[in-house]
Design a protein around this nucleic acid. Structure first.
Length: 285
DNA sequence: ACAACCTCCTGGGGGC
DNA sequence: TGCCCCCAGGAGGTTG
C-alpha cells in the first residue's frame, strides 16, 4: 500500500477538491471494508463542510465543521479519485474512474465535484472520530513521530532502538518507532546507508543511526516529489501514477547488480517475518 | 517484550 | 487457454 509518500500524494491531490467544500451526499455501496463503516456513516457526512485535509502516518484526516474527523486508511489497494472531465487548466476533476466493481464509497460535493473510493482488496477502512479523541484513539495512540516533522530528530532512533534485539527492518516497520514507513521505503533507506536489514537494531552505532535518520528523510522526500510509487494499484487522486518505482535501488530488483558505485554485489531477496526484503549482501552490513 | 506466523481480500503473473 | 500456486504497498491478532 500506500506508504507515507503515497498517502501524502493522495492528500495533496484530493485537497483542492475537498477542502472548503460542503458534502451534498455520501453513499456507501456495502456495509464494510476491512471494518464495518461507523453507524450512519453516510448520513453523518451529508451537509458537513471539510475544513482541512491532513495526514498522520498513513491515515488521511478530513476535519469536518462539526468537530468530527473523517478518517481514511488506504490499506493495500485503496484509492481516492476525483471524478470528472478536465475542462480547463486548473480544474481538478480529471481522474478516470477505476473499475467500478470495487468502488465502495461515492461522495458528491455541493459544487458539483465527486470523489470515489475504490479498493479491490478492501484492506482499507474509514471512520468518524471526535477531534478531541484523536490522540487517544487506538488508531493513533502509540504512533511514533512523523518522520518529516521536527519530532523525528537525529537522536530519536538511538533512543527508540536502544536494547532492541529485533532486526532493524522490523524496528523501522513498527509504527510506534516512526510512523508512515512501509516495506518499500524501509528497504530503500537501509540500502542507502549500507545497513543490513537483518542487523540487530540495538547494535547499530549512534553514528550509523544518524545517517539512517537522514536517509529515511531523504527517501521519503524524494518519493513525495515523485508522486509516490506505483506497483500496480496505486494512483494519486488525479489518477496519475507515481514515478518513484523507477528510482528504486533494491526493491523488487532481485538478481540485479547493486547500484552502489564500485560494489560488485547482486541484490538478494530474503523473507523477514513473512515480507520480502531486498538488499545487497555485499555493501549492506 | 518479542519473533514467527496467520488473517482479512482480490487480482496478476509465472509455471506447467 | 486454463488452472494452480505464489505473491503483493498494511497491520492487528494469536502463539509460544
Amino acid at each position: 500500500m500506500p506508504e507515507l509518500p503515497e498517502v501524502e500524494t493522495v492528500r495533496r491531490g484530493l485537497a483542492p477538491a475537498l477542502v472548503g467544500k460542503r458534502i451534498a451526499k455520501a453513499k456507501t455501496k456495502r456495509g464494510d471494508l476491512r471494518f464495518p463503516f461507523p453507524d450512519r456513516f453516510a448520513a453523518r457526512l451529508k451537509g458537513r463542510t471539510v475544513e482541512t485535509l491532513d495526514r498522520r502516518a498513513k491515515y488521511l484526516l478530513a476535519h469536518l465543521d462539526n468537530g468530527q474527523v473523517w478518517i481514511t486508511h488506504l490499506g493495500m489497494t485503496g484509492r481516492w479519485s476525483i471524478i470528472g472531465a478536465k475542462q480547463q487548466p486548473g480544474d481538478f476533476y480529471y481522474a478516470e474512474p477505476p473499475d467500478p466493481t470495487h468502488t465502495h464509497v461515492v461522495v458528491e460535493l455541493e459544487d458539483g465535484g465527486r470523489i470515489e473510493f475504490n479498493d479491490p482488496r478492501r484492506f482499507g477502512y474509514m471512520d468518524l472520530i471526535a477531534e478531541a479523541e484523536l490522540e487517544t484513539h487506538p488508531y493513533f495512540k502509540g504512533l511514533g513521530p512523523e518522520p518529516l516533522s521536527n519530532a523525528f530528530h537525529e537522536g530519536h532512533l538511538k533512543k527508540a532502538f536502544a536494547g532492541k534485539k529485533t532486526s532493524v527492518k522490523a524496528a523501522l516497520l513498527d509504527q510506534r518507532v516512526v510512523a508512515g514507513l512501509g516495506n518499500i521505503y524501509v528497504v530503500e533507506a537501509l540500502h542507502r546507508v549500507g545497513i543490513a536489514p537483518t542487523k540487530e537494531a540495538g547494535r547499530i552505532s549512534a553514528k550509523r543511526l544518524e545517517t539512517l535518520f537522514h536517509a529515511i528523510r531523504a527517501v521519503l522526500e524524494e518519493a513525495i516529489e515523485a508522486g509516490g510509487s506505483t506497483l500496480s494499484d496505486y494512483a494519486g487522486a488525479d489518477g496519475a501514477q507515481g514515478q518513484m518505482q523507477h528510482r528504486f535501488r533494491v526493491y523488487d530488483r532481485e538478481g540485479e547488480k547493486c547500484p552502489t558505485p564500485n560494489c560488485p554485489g547482486t541484490i538478494a531477496r530474503v523473507t523477514q517475518s513473512g515480507r520480502s526484503t531486498f538488499y545487497c549482501p555485499r555493501c549492506q552490513r
